[in-house]
């Protein structure tokens, strides 16, 4: 289990990195935290000829909040997100999701941009990005930038819209509203494992206590996390009572087109969705009452 040979590149600016990507195209891979990539390289499942290390591009690292938009540099580690007071205050579901990623040492080096670019369907960030309609900022060689919503960015298992010569530079999340309830409920066999099924929800109520907005997302039921648009729309103006939760949970478990594997058959995934949606909505509702 040793990686095959590659040429190592250590650009110190984004332009430099983009130029290298342009030069080597599909033969190159970007390495950020490398917590998935290096494992794959050790197994020789990935054998890039050129490895472009973006760890020395400081502009890619950092957390800011402007105009109720939380902006996280792609190179920011899971641990930095987990420990950020700014994140905790503006978008606490990110703090919670970060705590579920891998293990303590993995969180120190793994990055949010790396995780999103890798697009593992059982990973936390792609799912949370889809839940919150995060915006991906992507740099191109031309010096241009393009931005893309998470649902367009993440296309399938390990597949994103990122072209070989592009770099994901920043992810923006709209801050949660005041009194917005939220919950992230992953189910895994062991602590730190990729989830088998996960549910994430955000809920806001209007002044009369009816639902103003629901965001509900399932992981582990498709090749990417899925938003339950119809349920979200149908919930508007509904009273967030136990009945509603039960109905949503029942409806949600019919969503998606999951597969059988040795951790979960289709029916079990649906059973888990029902349990986790119930838990998530109860927690999210509680969150709306914190006021």
């Amino acid at each position: 289990m040793k990686p095959s040979p590659f040429t190592y590149h250590d650009p110190h600016s984004l332009d430099e990195a983009l130029a290298l990507l342009n030069q080597y195209g599909e033969e190159a891979r970007i390495i950020a935290g490398g917590q998935s990539l290096v494992a794959m390289m050790n197994l020789r499942l990935a054998q890039p000829d050129h490895l472009i290390d973006i760890n020395n591009i400081p502009v890619l690292n950092g957390i800011e909040c402007q105009d109720r938009l939380l902006q996280i540099g792609a190179l920011t580690s899971h641990q930095d997100i987990l420990q950020s007071e700014l994140v905790r205050q503006s978008c606490p579901i990110l703090t919670n999701a970060a705590a579920h990623i891998g293990h303590y040492a993995i969180r120190q080096r793994g990055t949010i941009g790396g995780s999103l670019s890798h697009a593992d369907p059982a990973a936390e960030w792609p799912m949370i990005a889809i839940l919150l309609d995060g915006e991906m900022e992507i740099a191109q060689l031309s010096g241009e930038k393009r931005t893309l919503g998470a649902r367009d960015f993440i296309q399938s298992i390990y597949t994103t819209d990122l072209a070989p010569e592009e770099i994901l530079t920043k992810i923006s999340f709209p801050c949660l509203e005041e009194n917005e309830g939220w919950a992230f409920k992953p189910f895994a066999r062991r602590r730190g494992d990729y989830f088998i099924v996960a549910v994430a929800a955000c809920l806001t109520l209007d002044q009369s206590g009816r639902i103003k907005r629901l965001r509900l997302c399932l992981g582990g039921m498709e090749a990417t996390a899925i938003r339950l648009d119809e349920i979200e729309q149908g919930s508007i103006a509904h009273l967030p009572d136990e009945n509603w939760i039960r109905e949503v949970a029942k409806a949600a478990c019919n969503e998606g087109n999951p597969v059988d594997d040795h951790n979960a058959d289709v029916e079990y995934r649906r059973e888990l969705v029902e349990i986790l949606v119930t838990d998530a909505l109860q927690d999210a509702f509680k969150g709306t009452q914190r006021g």
Partner: peptide, 16 residues
């Protein structure tokens, strides 16, 4: 063999 990696063969951790 479907469980040739430590991430696939589940040995209990301190949390379990």
């Amino acid at each position: 063999n479907q469980t040739g990696l430590l991430s696939e063969y589940m040995m209990a951790t301190a949390s379990e």
